[in-house]
Write a protein that binds this DNA or RNA. Structure first.
Length: 539
RNA sequence: GAUUCCGUAGCUCAGUUGGCAGAGCAAGCGACUUUUAAUCGCUAGGUCCUGGGUUCGAGCCCCAGCGGAAUCACCA
């Protein structure tokens, strides 16, 4: 066990051995630190490329030609200077010339190194560098004879020796497991990865700008909660030693954000992680990011407007980003963006479609949800064994999710509203029909993006819905993590203003706007099963 | 948790009817002052995911396990 690391080093193979030999060569014979040092004034590769000056390049070429004919005529070089850093992703040694392509988070750029331009040791270094090494180079921005924009380097130094064999230079890294487990390799091998995460970051910045512009206050509420409320999901459990109490990682921030409405903040939002101990698939990761919004004296209609404006605005901005990369795309118009999502083209023009729950139900099933005999027949078809003793409204909801939700046009953002009240215990029932909740859900690309509610602020009705919900649970669930949140009810009794609220899935929004197939492609480090060391796990 | 598919060199992948383990790139040595996945010559590189089984013989067939992907279930 103790010499495992040593064995590992020995077992790493010839590729690593070759790199370690170069590491020693750098230290012993070249006298350089293979892991570099501080460098000031580095510019991005995209910026360096933008410095290219055709006139200066032509003048320099003419000056070199003149000098060749008549050595007394000095070479004039007005080409712009650049200092850059990057990871080597291609390396071509052509004898007394070395070409390498370096990559940073903005671009790829070729470094051209001529034996004539560099100190002898630096040219020796240029020939020995590997794919994966991080280098710093200085020189003039120009072009090669073949027209490639490059930096004709006169200074070159290594700032990190990569000891690990890199993925292939043309196929990149495509194995999904390796991409998620070794994201840092994925990031340099596949430039699209960094593009995606930059797009996600921009999206979140824009959400903050949107919310702040509407005078909402960003807040942070507990991630560790004594009672995991605000949603129905299995929580992760932990323990606080000093207080000797169980704690739950939150499944939603809702009950705390509402306490802030009680306290007198009229418009609040939070962008942060929720944790749900459930399955993992293309649209679920155990930890995921939510935007939650509460607006005093609003309702589900004001929140619907807010949601539609926000999503539309994000789509407009995303369209501009995509056009900046490639102007020759058909992405609709500025006001009516059409964005690709897999094989789909999602139309973000306002207004989005709005359809009542029961209308969509009847449209999809061919009979009204009130025809409970037929509803239960379909539920039986679906193989829901527990359906017979289930409350009618739950059965309706199951059938809706299986047969109606799937009929929503994935290319047309759609709000479904007036959901059955029983499935929304934190939502205010309609005054004219208490069986319906003032709830609206946004669907895009076949995914539920987020629900918006008129929040329930009557403490007595809320108490009733909580106890009703708890009575339907078995002992294990109740004793482990479903408890009546008395403190929240106390807050409601103090008095919460009427309000509208929203929960928007940030990861799913990122999936849509970055045109990614899986939530794992928009979460930097998605949860993976750890690789067990040795065969101790076998049992 | 269920089902299906996948796991072969650093990467991307072939591998026929069960009969000596393969290619391209990457790597090592050599050549080359304009390469663009550079080119040319030579060389090296394998726990075929793991463990059993069948067989004269298993990368290939069977069983179990591990890891991944997709679909389903769970996630109001």
């Amino acid at each position: 066990m103790s010499n495992e690391t040593q064995e590992q080093v020995q077992d790493e193979g010839e590729l690593v051995a070759a790199r370690r030999a170069k590491l020693e060569w750098l230290r012993d014979e070249m006298g350089v630190d293979p892991f570099g040092h501080r460098v000031d004034g580095i510019m991005s590769l995209a910026h360096a490329r933008s410095l290219f000056d055709a006139a200066a390049d032509d003048a320099h070429a003419a000056s070199v030609a003149a000098n060749k004919e008549d050595a007394s005529r000095e070479v004039v070089d007005a080409r712009p200077k650049a200092l850059v850093a990057g990871r080597i992703v291609q390396h071509r040694d052509v004898g007394k010339l070395v070409f390498m392509v370096v990559r940073d988070d903005t671009d790829d750029l070729q470094l051209s190194l001529s034996k004539a331009d560099l100190a002898p040791e630096q040219f020796k270094l240029a020939k020995k560098l590997d794919y994966g090494d991080i280098v710093v180079a200085a020189g003039r921005v120009g072009k090669t004879k073949r027209g490639e924009t490059c930096i004709w380097a006169d200074q070159l130094s290594i700032h990190s020796k990569s000891l690990v064999p890199p993925p292939g230079k043309h196929h990149g890294l495509s194995d999904p497991e390796t991409r998620y487990r070794r994201r840092y390799v994925d990031m340099y091998a596949n430039p699209g990865t960094i593009r995606t995460f930059k797009a996600r970051s921009r999206m979140i910045t824009r959400i903050r700008e949107f919310m702040n512009a509407r005078d909402f206050l960003e807040v942070e509420t507990p991630m560790m909660q004594p009672i995991a409320g605000g949603a129905a999901a299995r929580p992760f459990m932990t323990h606080h030693n000093a207080l000797d109490i169980p704690l739950f990682l939150r499944i939603a921030p809702e009950l705390y954000l509402k306490r802030l409405l009680v306290g007198g903040l009229p418009r609040v939002y939070e962008i942060n992680r929720n944790f749900r101990n459930e399955g993992i698939d293309r649209s679920h990761n155990p930890e995921f990011t939510m935007l939650e919004v509460y607006e005093a004296f609003g309702n589900y209609e004001t929140i619907l407007e807010l949601t539609e404006s926000l999503v539309h605005q994000l789509a407009v901005a995303t369209r501009e980003d995509l056009l900046a990369e490639d102007p020759d795309q058909d992405l609709g118009t500025a006001e009516a963006p059409v964005l690709p999502f897999g094989e789909l083209r999602v139309r973000y023009a306002r207004p989005f479609r709005k359809v009542r729950f029961h209308e969509l139900f009847e449209e999809a099933l061919g009979f009204p949800a009130s025809d409970i005999e037929k509803v239960r027949a379909v539920a039986a078809e679906l193989g829901r064994e527990h359906a017979p003793d289930m409350d009618d409204a739950f059965v309706v909801n199951e059938v809706f999710e299986a047969r109606a939700e799937t009929t929503i046009d994935p290319e047309q953002p759609t709000f479904v509203y007036d959901w059955p009240s029983v499935i929304s215990p934190l939502t205010r029932p309609r005054a004219d029909d208490p069986s319906l909740a003032e709830r609206v859900d946004l669907f895009i690309g076949g995914m539920e993006i987020g629900p918006a509610y008129t929040e329930l602020n009557d403490p007595d009705i809320q108490y009733g819905k909580f106890t009703e919900q708890l009575s339907g649970l078995d002992d294990e669930e109740e004793s482990t993590f479903r408890t009546l949140d008395e403190e929240f009810l106390d807050a409601l009794r103090v008095g919460m203003p009427p309000a509208g609220g929203l929960g928007l899935g940030i990861d799913r929004m990122a999936i849509l706007l970055t045109n990614s197939p899986s939530i794992r492609d928009v979460i930097l480090f998605p949860l993976m099963r750890p690789i067990e060391a040795g065969d101790e796990a076998a049992e």
